Computed example of a mutant assay.
Amino acid sequence: MPHSPTDRADVRDMLVVHEAFRLNYSRLPGVVRAVTSGDAERAAVVADHAQLIEDFLHLHHMGEDELLWPKLLERGGDRLGETVNLLESQHVEIAALLTESSQRLAIWRDQPTKENGEPLARSLERLGALLTEHLGIEEKDVLPIVPEYVTAKEWHALGDHAINALPKNKLPVIFGMLASLADAEVVKLMLSTAPLVPRLLMPVLGPKAYARYARKVFEPVA
């Protein structure tokens, strides 16, 4: 299914999303372990962040399952079918680990002890390890070929799927997090389908919102 160069998906925004997931899951186990037993206020901050990243990851994978893999199998299954099937199976494994970590997160949030925090940290480590493997396969074997089979409009619909389902009050933080990992051209790409007002305001509000948020979440253990 050939597309003109201007109508092809530009996958650079997904590389930024992947990097955000890798970065957060590399840091979260240590952030959890650093919380002092009984510090419910600090545990709530960390738990809220962990839940936000889990929700974002779940929505990201749901979008791929519903909007990306079917198109690739239909249009390029002879080239990509085996890899897409592997990635789909890994989504199932990752979903199981997300459920496990979410359950342990709820226990730790309610009773933030070292005894409850360590199983959560180990669960997050397992999730991060599988996710790193998964993202590596996707970036090496799938994303370079996606523009041959997916239009720019279809690609933007995939990105909008996750963003539109996140809480609106978290969007400046999410955008700021992604923008902190992207160059100016990719930031422009991420905002290309946004309404005018967010397109104008997010480059100003997002980085400031994320800077404040990151200090609150990460600096106590930096």
Score class of each variant (00 low, 15 high):
3 H>V: 12
4 S>W: 12
4 S>H: 15
7 D>E: 15
8 R>H: 06
9 A>T: 03
16 V>I: 10
18 H>M: 08
18 H>D: 06
19 E>M: 12
19 E>V: 05
19 E>W: 12
19 E>K: 10
20 A>F: 03
22 R>L: 09
27 R>S: 11
28 L>Y: 12
31 V>R: 06
34 A>N: 10
34 A>H: 07
35 V>G: 02
37 S>Q: 07
38 G>Q: 05
39 D>I: 07
41 E>P: 09
41 E>H: 09
44 A>Q: 12
46 V>R: 03
48 D>C: 07
51 Q>V: 08
54 E>T: 10
55 D>V: 09
55 D>L: 13
57 L>Y: 01
59 L>A: 05
59 L>D: 02
61 H>I: 08
61 H>D: 09
62 M>C: 11
66 E>H: 06
73 L>M: 13
74 E>D: 15
75 R>K: 13
76 G>V: 04
77 G>N: 04
78 D>H: 13
79 R>Y: 11
82 E>N: 11
82 E>W: 13
83 T>C: 10
84 V>A: 03
89 S>M: 13
89 S>R: 05
90 Q>G: 03
90 Q>W: 01
91 H>E: 01
92 V>I: 14
93 E>R: 13
96 A>I: 11
97 L>K: 06
97 L>A: 01
100 E>I: 00
102 S>D: 14
109 R>I: 00
110 D>N: 10
111 Q>P: 06
112 P>G: 01
113 T>V: 04
114 K>V: 13
114 K>S: 11
115 E>K: 02
115 E>V: 00
115 E>F: 02
115 E>M: 04
116 N>R: 02
117 G>Q: 02
118 E>D: 06
122 R>P: 03
124 L>Q: 02
127 L>V: 04
129 A>C: 11
130 L>I: 08
130 L>A: 04
130 L>R: 05
133 E>D: 15
134 H>R: 05
135 L>T: 03
138 E>N: 04
139 E>W: 01
145 I>W: 08
145 I>A: 10
148 E>K: 11
149 Y>T: 02
153 K>M: 14
161 H>L: 05
162 A>Q: 00
163 I>K: 04
165 A>V: 09
168 K>M: 09
170 K>L: 15
170 K>D: 15
170 K>P: 09
171 L>I: 13
172 P>M: 03
172 P>S: 00
179 A>N: 09
180 S>D: 07
180 S>Q: 05
184 A>W: 10
184 A>R: 14
188 K>A: 13
188 K>F: 12
189 L>I: 06
190 M>H: 03
194 A>M: 14
196 L>C: 11
196 L>R: 15
197 V>Q: 09
197 V>Y: 10
199 R>N: 08
202 M>H: 00
203 P>A: 04
205 L>E: 07
205 L>V: 14
207 P>Q: 01
208 K>T: 09
209 A>K: 04
209 A>P: 07
210 Y>Q: 02
211 A>Y: 04
214 A>R: 14
218 F>L: 14
221 V>W: 12
